[in-house]
């Protein structure tokens, strides 16, 4: 049942324009990050600091790289609005005639999580391929203050490929969490645009509040990408744990909200 839900969700994702636009934007913004970090020819660059792995961290955590602030929006564009589409079109009812409500919502949550996760990996790897062409593919030779990331520094120096996979995992889990928050919102809100915008608006508003409070350690933007060079010295496990927990919370919340609504009279219909 869950396998067929994942297949179904995949067919739907590939048939819509929104996920393709999101993928293009994702790769495009990664390239923008790689380009904005690319040193001017006349600038002095410390030997060995100019490599593909440093560029990869910069494109996720550098102030002028624009991917991180829009991750919530792009993540929802992939599949986060799927439940809202089901409700809006009434397709949900046709599905619920063929499966029970628990299977439906569990299948949907698992499928959306898997597809969003996969989508980020594809985008990130495509972006990294570009970086491999643009930057010298060499392992970081030594720690350079202000350039070598503080986050998981040991891993970055000793196993940069594992470091790369960890960062992609963190980013993918953040995207999954935002997508699942959108699904949770879909149990209460029917407007597709609101569902698309609200996770991003929440993200931006929270960031704004933390900035007003003087830049606390826990901030949406820092947890999404700016944790590399932050002064707060994030622990390696802290970032993935946060996103996995938030995704699990959104997953559980959606499951409870959906089933409560179904028991009250199945009024998820338009």
């Amino acid at each position: 049942m869950y396998g067929s839900m994942i297949r179904m969700e995949l067919v739907r994702t590939l048939s819509r324009w929104q996920p393709w636009v999101a993928l293009l934007l994702w790769v495009g913004l990664l390239i923008q990050g790689y380009e904005v970090f690319y040193p001017e020819p006349q600038m002095y660059v410390e030997p060995g600091s100019f490599n593909v792995f440093v560029a990869f961290t910069k494109t996720h955590g550098y102030d002028l790289a624009f991917l991180t602030p829009v991750i919530p929006l792009l993540a929802v564009m992939v599949a986060g609005d799927s439940l809202a589409w089901d409700v809006r079109t009434g397709f949900q009812h046709s599905m619920l005639l063929r499966m029970n409500g628990k299977e439906y919502i569990l299948g949907k949550l698992i499928a959306i999580s898997c597809i969003t996760f996969l989508f980020v990996w594809i985008g990130e790897l495509l972006g990294f391929l570009y970086a491999m062409i643009r930057y010298p593919v060499i392992f970081p030779p030594y720690i350079i203050e202000g350039i070598t990331p503080d986050y998981a520094q040991g891993l970055f120096m000793d196993y940069p490929i594992l470091f790369l996979l960890l960062i992609i995992f963190n980013t993918a889990m953040a995207a999954v969490a935002f997508a699942l928050i959108a699904v949770a919102l879909s149990t209460k809100i029917k407007n597709l645009y609101a569902i698309l915008a609200l996770p991003w608006l929440g993200f931006t508003s929270l960031e704004f509040i933390t900035q007003i409070l003087g830049g606390t350690r826990i901030s949406p933007l820092k947890y999404t990408g700016y944790y590399f060079l932050a002064v707060f010295q994030y622990k390696v496990w802290e970032i993935p744990l946060f996103w996995v927990s938030l995704a699990a919370l959104a997953f559980l919340l959606t499951y409870v909200l959906f089933n409560t609504q179904l028991k009250r009279g199945g009024q998820l219909v338009k």
């Binding site: 005639l97 029970n100 409500g101 199945g266």
Partner: peptide, 11 residues
């Protein structure tokens, strides 16, 4: 509630 898919016949 929510268990329509478990019915013995299809609708």
């Amino acid at each position: 509630p929510g268990l329509l898919g478990n019915l013995p016949v299809m609708i």
